[in-house]
Simulated scan of single mutants.
Amino acid sequence: MSRGAWRDRGAWLLAFMHAFVAVCVLLPSAGVHAAETVHAQIAATSEQVAALTAVLEARLEPLVLEVTAVEAVDPAAALSAPPTEDVARVWITLDDGGATAIVLSGDGARGMVRQLPREGASDEVLREELALVIGTAVDTLRRDAASLASSAALREELGLSPEPEPPPEPAPSVEPPPPAPPEPSPIASLPPLPPVVRTPPPVEPTRWRLAGMAFYEVQGFAAGQIIAHGPGLSLGLGGPPLTLGPRFELSGQYRLPAAAENDVAGLRLHSGAFRLTTQLTVVRSSRVLLRVLGGAGLDLLVIEPFLVDARAELMPRRVRIAPALRFGLDVPVRLAGEVSLRIGAGMDVDAIGTRYVIQDGDALVPLLDPLRIRPLLSLGVDTTFVGHPAFGP
C-alpha cells in the first residue's frame, strides 16, 4: 500500500475520533441542561441581580442556573405556573426591607417560602443568607421532596385562596349498540280478540222523589144535610227508593158552596181544606202500592147567613178556621210509566166539635151540626216530577 493511501486512512480515523469525543462530551452536558437546571426569576436592581446570580451559581454548582430579571414577583402566579423539566424554580424579591424567596419543584407540587428581613445586614450578608436558604431547599427537593410543604400549604402560608380544582374530564361518549331486530311474536298467528264492550256503570237513582197529584174528594160533612166536595192539588216528597217511606204530602182543596136553613134563617158555607200527612208504604209491587197515612190540617170556613123570616135579625158574614185530623189509606195503581191512579179512603176528625146555631130568644136552635168524624173518598192522578220511580221492579 502506498504512502498516500495510509495518509488518507489516518485522516479518516482522526476525524472519527474527534466526532466520537464530541458526542461523548455534548450528550451528557445536554442531559444536565434538561434535567439539572434551576430557573430563577429575580425582582431587584440590575446590580443586585448580577451580584446575587454570582453567589447562587457558586452555591448551586454543578447545577445550571438560568436567571431572568423581572419587575415584580406575583406569588399567586408563581404557585400557579405550569410544570417544567427543571430541578427547581425560584422566585426572589430583593429590596430595602429584606428578601423573599419562593422555591418550587419542577412540577410545582412541593416547595418552600422564606422571608429574610434585612435588620441592618449589608447586601453581601443578605445575599449569602439567601443563597444558603435556596441551596438547602434545592438539595432537599433533589433528595427528599416529600419533606417540604405542599403547594396548598404554601398558598395558605402566603394568604392566597385555594387553587380551583380543574373541571372534570367529560365522560367518553359511547354510542348505544344498534337495536336488535324484533323477535317474531308467538301470538302473531292467533285470531284477533273480540272487541271489548264496556257497559256504562249503573246510574244511582236519586234518593228522594218529588210527585204531584190532581184529585177530587167527597166528604160527609153533616148527617143527612151537606156533602162537602171539590177539586184539589197535592205535592208529595218521598224517601229513598224501595223502602217503606216515609213520604210527606201537602194538599189543598177547594170545596163547593153548601147551604142549610130552617124556618127562621139559613147559611151558605164556602170552605177550603189544607192537610199535611205522613205516609208509610206497607205494600209495594210493580203495579200497586198500599200506603197508610196520618196527619193534620185546617178548614177555612166563610159563613154567610141569610133570612127566611123577615122578623129575624141577620148576623154579619164571618170567617172561621177549624183544626182537623186526618187518617186513611192510599192505593196508587200504575197506569203507564210514572203516571198512576190514586184511590183514597179515610176520615177527618173535627178537633173542636164545630156547631152552627141561631138564637131564638134565650134558646139556641141548631142550624147545622157537622159530624165529628167525617168519612171521605178521593180519586186522583199522580205523576213523578223528579227522583226515583214510585213502584217496585
Score class of each variant (00 low, 15 high):
Gly230Ile: 07
Glu249Ser: 12
Arg255Met: 15
Gly239Thr: 00
Leu256Asp: 08
Gln219Met: 10
Ser251Pro: 07
Phe248Arg: 01
Glu249Ala: 07
Pro241Gln: 07
Ser251Phe: 13
Pro257Leu: 15
Gly224Met: 01
Gly245Trp: 07
Leu235Thr: 02
Leu244Glu: 08
Gln225Cys: 00
Ile227Tyr: 06
Gly224Val: 00
Arg255Asp: 14
Ala223Leu: 08
Thr243Trp: 07
Ser251Asp: 13
Ala222Ile: 02
Asn262Gly: 08
Ile226Ala: 06
Ile227Gly: 06
Ala259Gln: 15
Arg255Thr: 13
Val264Asn: 14
Ala223Phe: 06
Glu217Gln: 12
Pro241Asp: 06
Ser234Val: 00
Gly224Pro: 02
Gly252Val: 06
Leu237Asn: 02
Arg247Tyr: 15
Leu233His: 07
Pro257Phe: 14
Pro240Arg: 04
Ser251Trp: 12
Leu250Cys: 08
Ala223Cys: 01
Gly245His: 06
Ala259Lys: 15
Pro231Glu: 05
Glu249Met: 13
Gly236Val: 03
Leu233Val: 11
Pro240Gln: 05
Ala222Thr: 00
Glu217Arg: 09
Leu244Ile: 10
Ser234Trp: 01
Ser234Tyr: 01
Ala223Asp: 09
Glu249His: 10
Ala260Ile: 05
Gly220Lys: 03
His229Thr: 03
Ile227Thr: 13
Glu261Thr: 07
Leu256Thr: 14
Ala260Gln: 13
Gly252Asp: 08
Leu233Tyr: 04
Asn262Ile: 11
Leu235Gln: 03
Glu249Pro: 04
